[in-house]
Amino acid sequence: MTTPIHWRPAVASDAAALSILGGATFLASFAHDHPGEALVAHIRKAHGEDYYRAALADPAQTILIGETPLGAPVGYALITPPDLPVPTDDRTDVELKRIYLLSGWQGGGNGDALMALVLAEARQRGARRLLLAVYPQNDRARRFYARHDFVEIGELTFMVGDVPFRDLVYARTL
């Protein structure tokens, strides 16, 4: 897709758009190997408007949203204090909890541009390390993170509805 993406910090009025975008990107990313009922339950809970309203109201969290020139949401990233089962330091670590682009906007440098914004936000917060969790079967995401100097440091169980999945924990020094 050649349509440019305009990135900006999300605001409270973006909760509905983030909910739709979050559900759509999660479904598109994992429908191929996650059970439907569990997937829908997860999306309702973890991508509902209430979730994004709370995240947007929390000064410890930042959401960057990307839009087309006409204002259609096509990607986002959620940066939070770390909440992963590895040793962390709240003063120097931040977590990239979510980073997604709709498939039509993947490639062409859009992901790299979003990661650059995430890294800048992490550094602005005084972070020295950026952490994230990734599904081991998501080869495209794992290649993307490797290209951005992330390395595996652990693993966790990620619940999708009532179904457990194994995720890998990655870190990158800033």
Rank of each mutant, 00 (worst) to 15 (best):
T2L: 07
P4S: 02
H6S: 11
V11Q: 15
S13Y: 06
S13W: 04
A16N: 10
I20D: 13
L21T: 06
L21Q: 11
L21G: 05
F30Y: 15
H34F: 04
A38P: 02
L39G: 01
A46N: 14
G48Q: 05
Y51P: 03
R53D: 10
A54W: 01
A54L: 08
D58W: 00
D58Q: 05
P59M: 00
A60L: 08
T62H: 10
T62V: 12
T62F: 08
T62W: 03
L64D: 08
I65F: 04
G66L: 01
E67A: 09
A72S: 05
P73N: 01
G75I: 02
G75A: 14
Y76V: 13
L78Y: 13
P81A: 14
P82E: 09
D83G: 02
P85N: 05
P85M: 02
P87S: 08
R91Q: 13
L96Y: 11
I99M: 15
I99R: 10
G104E: 15
W105Y: 15
G107C: 04
N110K: 06
G111K: 02
G111N: 07
A120Q: 15
E121K: 10
G126A: 01
G126I: 01
G126F: 03
R129I: 04
L130F: 00
Y135Q: 12
N138L: 11
N138F: 03
N138R: 11
N138A: 14
R140Y: 08
R140T: 12
A141F: 13
A141R: 09
R143P: 04
R143L: 11
A146V: 04
R147W: 06
L156V: 00
L156T: 15
T157R: 03
T157G: 01
M159N: 14
G161A: 10
D162R: 12
F165N: 07
R166E: 12
R166W: 05
V169T: 13
Y170N: 05
R172A: 04
R172L: 07
L174V: 10
